[in-house]
Design a protein around this nucleic acid. Structure first.
Lengths: 147, 147
DNA sequence: TTTCATGTAACAATAATAGTTACGAAGCGC
DNA sequence: GCGCTTCGTAACTATTATTGTTACATGAAA
């Protein structure tokens, strides 16, 4: 199966938006993400519905943030994307009749649930402002490296 | 995409084996797992190569453990299965040229890596004996419930 | 009113998992 | 040795989720 890259992709898009003053069109972002404008709109639609970004049509239109970067957590983004399945590994049957399988599912399920909770806490504690800061440090180091 | 259920499936199979004295054939296990004998062999092959189980052909053949349940961790099983991808979510590009994307990948990748480490530690600390004990407690409760 | 841009449905392409068929090789019992 | 059982494996199909593409409608600015 292909892995779900929507979270990474949308964060990539948002970081490009964060580096600009004016709205970016879906075509602009598609170019950055090396994908299609329709894919961009499809993904960003969730964020728009969640009130994280806003879109405008026509001349001068495009995507912009609806609130400050520091007030948008990665968890907000994740939720806005429809809380995609985190784990690729999982049970064979959701509600097994076999008692042995129920037991296995419980043990594995608990372990996955705990790991997911930790991941979500990490997402909740990271804002887009943090991401942008991380990027600016890296960019500075990069410039120092090459210059 | 379908989720990877090999870990759950193989644990289910092993727990059935743990409840028996004699080897179980791939057909037996396929019946338990509601799947195909070939799928069972394909999955168990990794465990055999890792020295966790042994297989015998012909009359009286089938699958049996190569060492005590208490000496087999879930991590051993996971590794024997070829360390399948844990997360369904992941980066769009493994080695992006875009510095913004690199930054995003680093932040998300670190979060996933930490969550994965915790999951692996949990797997390492759980043996098949633990799983079997958990099952026996559940089975006892179940009997008390119905009887 | 023309152009730009989003909104969305429908369809195609891609990729991973799981299931199936077919055949070969090895082991046990008679 | 013969036949039955059972694993070993390759090749193919089926299913499903993600992603990409095409097409067309809608709305806003110049």
């Amino acid at each position: 199966m292909k892995r779900n890259s929507r979270l990474s992709a949308v964060l990539h898009a948002l970081m490009h938006m964060a580096e600009r003053e004016t709205p970016m069109t879906s075509d602009d972002l598609a170019l950055c993400l090396d994908t299609n404008a329709v894919v961009v709109r499809r993904t960003m639609a969730g964020l728009r519905d969640a009130g994280i970004v806003q879109s405008g049509r026509g001349h001068g239109g495009g995507w912009h943030f609806a609130r400050p970067l520091a007030e948008i957590s990665l968890l907000d983004i994740y939720n806005a994307l429809g809380e995609p399945i985190v784990f690729q590994i999982g049970p064979a049957t959701e509600m097994p009749g076999c008692v042995v399988e129920q037991s296995v599912n419980r043990v594995i399920g608990d372990a996955l649930k705990d790991a997911e909770a930790i991941l979500m806490a990490r997402f909740a504690g990271t804002t887009l402002a943090d991401l942008a800061a991380d990027f600016r440090v890296a960019a500075k180091l990069c410039r120092a490296d090459t210059g």
